[in-house]
Design a protein around this nucleic acid. Sequence first.
DNA 1: CGACACATGTAACACGTTACATGATTTG
DNA 2: CAAATCATGTAACGTGTTACATGTGTCG
Lengths: 186, 186
Amino acid sequence: MSVRNGLLALLAERPRYGYELRGEFEARTGTTWPLNVGQVYTTLSRLERDGCVTASDAGESGQQYYEITAEGRAEVTAWFTTPVRREARPRDELAIKLALAVGNQDVDIAAVVQAQRTDSLRALQDYTRLKAQAGPEDLAWLLVLDAMVFQTEAEVRWLDHCESRVVQGRRPVVRPTPVEDVERAR
Amino acid sequence: MSVRNGLLALLAERPRYGYELRGEFEARTGTTWPLNVGQVYTTLSRLERDGCVTASDAGESGQQYYEITAEGRAEVTAWFTTPVRREARPRDELAIKLALAVGNQDVDIAAVVQAQRTDSLRALQDYTRLKAQAGPEDLAWLLVLDAMVFQTEAEVRWLDHCESRVVQGRRPVVRPTPVEDVERAR
DNA sequence: CGACACATGTAACACGTTACATGATTTG
DNA sequence: CAAATCATGTAACGTGTTACATGTGTCG
């Protein structure tokens, strides 16, 4: 519901037309998740269908302005008031991937972790560069970038954690005290 | 693609039937995101349609076993090998919410942050309790829980960060050094 | 003129999700 | 016997997403 609620929140500020909405949405949430213009229109149709917005008469240059309704305003208020519950979030693909990897002897977990860490560190660099480019007037965009940084740092730490946990938890099963180790221990 | 790839990964270990798949999936990824049985069957149909699995002849008790195909195996390998790119993840609803909130003077950001933090801290408690309940044999489930803990901690830190950023960045616009503050400062 | 940004819209699909229908088997 | 669990499946919907069609205006 991110796009739907996001567009509705922008319309709660003032009426806007489709193309304008994409610009505003991207200006505030940044280049991380570009928003296809087509999706703006499909989402607006659905919002109109649900009685959250009404298409006002076209503007001077033929732009199709949308106004928020009382019902839509209630939805936005509810959105801002209610926390995003963790249980309601989409499944974490990375967590699932590793959870299924540790149960599968054929999967090289170290390689999976390493590939993921490389990408996360690359992303971290990208975010740092983007933060340097953004001006202090882009407060919203900077906050989104900070969210990405915090998340990615947590992800890297979790990957390290997984690696150390797995060598402790899985090695003994794969190699139940081989003879060489017993002999070496003497 | 979490469910689809997850089920495919389980089928890469050995053939299983639908109901069994749900059990395994939930045993490894835990109670955070329960998996509706219906979805297992819809996903299996789509996997079959795409040539990733084949429905083998029914087992002795009439269970419908599914086997992974070479194509399916290739998909699983690709899934484990390729990192989950940050840009490909679903939009972060919380980040978007706050990004749009800071640009809207009518939204009480402190309240939004506070509501979210309360829920995040509650979730953190839940995770701690679940970790205590889980046995050390549930390695996968424990790792998923750790992921949730790491993420939630990062989220709380980000919320604090937002709060302090916003009082710096927005207050001056709303209250451009009121007279009372100047007088109080003497 | 040709390319590019502005602007609106539709068709089609993927995945996730729930609700429902149906039957067999087990267990208190 | 009744309730619960096992087991399979379908219908329907919602959101997100892309690809495509179409037209206007502007600027080098």
